[in-house]
Each structure stands twice: as structure tokens, then as C-alpha cells.
């Protein structure tokens, strides 16, 4: 589904990603871990198409297409979803209006008719329950005045609405209490299928108690320095990152 080869990316001519290689197949859950500043969020942003970053080298293929040929909105409509680490507030724009526009734009891209208002509201009700989202939240402006936990749940709610093929969750667990963590993980697990894949970016092993990954990758200084199964996460939790860093020749 997604193939990343030797990806390098800069921000303001400072190199952040220094040659990433990663293969993600349908049905898989990949966890990317690593200390602060290792490039985890940059990787997520580059995949989603944020212009802030410049890709200097490498190739990313998504479902047989050159990812960098697609605009951010085309990537979204082709099924890439980014769960933001810091969801953005858009004052005055209701969640209902925002989601309706997004869902129907994506449907248009796929050659489908827009959803009728009643079908759309039905879908919203259904998905809200999935992430146990307070129904008042969807009547408010996008993320405006939401608590940290509400914002993250709202990200998962949007993911549920858009049913992406590839979900990239950027530190969705940060700032969540244990109940919210369970709800968020629950949402992700329920959406899992043999046809889609997730990349879960996280700082702590804790989330991986709830979302069981098929692969764990350690990102450090812009490179993946170690990949393994879910047991790698436990090892990291126990030993920290230092033992891995020592083994690297930069």
C-alpha cells in the first residue's frame, strides 16, 4: 500500500528526515516510536503533504501512485488520513458543516453522489457512538473550546467518518487520560480491517497495550534505526532509547 524509499526532507534547509525506508501493507498496523525531535511528526506531515517541508530525495509510492504528484486534498481523497498531534481550531465553522464538506468532497473525487442530509446525519450519529463523542461537540465550531482529550477524540471521530485506507495517527495518545486512551484505541481497533492500514506514531509504549502493532520501528535522528515486532516496544519501555543510540554510527 505504502512504500517509502530513502526519504529525505528539510525544513528551512535543515535536514530532518535522513533516509527513511518503510513498507506498509494492507491489514497491517505499524508503530513508530522515538525520542522527541527524531522526525516522527515530520514524517507524518510529509506524507500528508504539508508544504512547510521540502522533500529533497527519495520516493514514496502509495497504491501504485507517486505520492508527491498528489496535492494534500487529493491524498486525503485517495484515503490518507492524518490524525493531528495538535488539532486546529476553526472558529465559526460547525463540525457538521466541516465534516459534510469533507465527506462530500471526497465522494466527489471518487465519482460518488453527495450524501443527502439525512444520510449524513445518520452516519454522524453512528460514528459518534463509536468514539463516545458527546453529541454537543459536533454542534460546536471545529475544535474550538474543546479540551485536549475532546480534540483527540474528535480526530478519531473524523477518521471514522472518512473511513481512510491509510490512517497516520500522530501522537494521538499524548495528553490523554486512561479512559480517553481506551476510547481512542477502541475506535482505531474497530476501524481495522484487512483492507486498510495504520501508522501509529507514539512516544510511549502505553498506547500499544491497546492498539497491538504488527511492527514497531524506532526513529532516531531522521532514520529508522531498528525495526521489530511488538516485543520491541516492551524492550524500549524497559530500557529507554539510549541503548539503541549507542549502537549507531552517525
Amino acid at each position: 500500500m505504502l512504500s517509502i524509499k530513502n526519504l529525505h526532507a528539510n525544513i528551512e534547509s535543515k535536514e530532518i528526515l535522513k533516509g527513511i525506508n518503510l513498507e506498509v501493507k494492507a491489514g497491517e498496523v505499524h508503530a513508530i516510536m522515538g525520542p522527541n525531535g527524531s522526525g516522527k511528526s515530520t514524517l507524518a506531515s510529509v506524507l500528508a503533504g504539508r508544504e512547510l517541508f521540502t522533500v529533497t530525495e527519495g520516493k514514496v509510492t502509495y497504491q501504485g501512485k507517486d505520492l508527491f504528484e498528489l496535492s494534500p486534498e487529493e491524498r486525503a481523497s485517495e484515503g490518507i488520513f492524518l490524525g493531528f498531534q495538535y488539532p486546529i481550531e476553526i472558529p465559526g465553522v460547525s463540525m457538521v458543516n466541516f465534516m459534510k464538506t469533507a465527506v462530500n468532497e471526497q465522494r466527489k473525487h471518487r465519482g460518488l453522489e453527495p450524501l443527502s442530509s439525512s444520510d449524513f446525519l445518520k452516519l454522524m450519529r453512528e460514528k459518534k457512538e463509536l468514539v463516545e463523542l458527546d453529541s454537543n461537540l459536533t454542534n460546536r465550531s471545529v475544535n474550538e473550546g474543546f479540551s485536549g482529550g475532546e480534540k483527540k477524540r474528535n480526530e478519531i471521530f473524523q477518521m471514522a467518518m472518512l473511513e481512510p485506507k491509510l490512517a497516520i495517527l500522530d501522537e494521538t495518545d499524548s495528553g490523554l487520560d486512561i479512559d480517553a486512551l481506551r476510547i481512542v484505541a477502541n475506535g482505531v481497533n474497530k476501524l481495522k480491517s484487512p483492507y486498510n492500514a495504520s501508522i501509529v506514531i507514539t512516544h510511549y509504549q502505553r498506547l500499544l497495550d491497546y492498539i497491538v502493532p504488527d511492527f514497531v520501528h524506532v526513529l532516531y535522528d531522521g532514520k529508522i534505526i531498528r525495526s521489530g515486532g511488538k516485543e520491541l516496544a516492551f524492550e524500549l519501555e524497559e530500557k529507554g532509547y539510549d541503548w539503541l543510540k549507542k549502537g549507531i554510527v552517525v
Partner: peptide, 9 residues
């Protein structure tokens, strides 16, 4: 960008 990422031009 947030809107773009949800598929909105």
C-alpha cells in the same frame, strides 16, 4: 492544511 487534509480544496 487541516481542511486540505480532510479532502477540502
Amino acid at each position: 492544511f487541516y481542511c486540505n487534509q480532510r479532502g477540502i480544496k
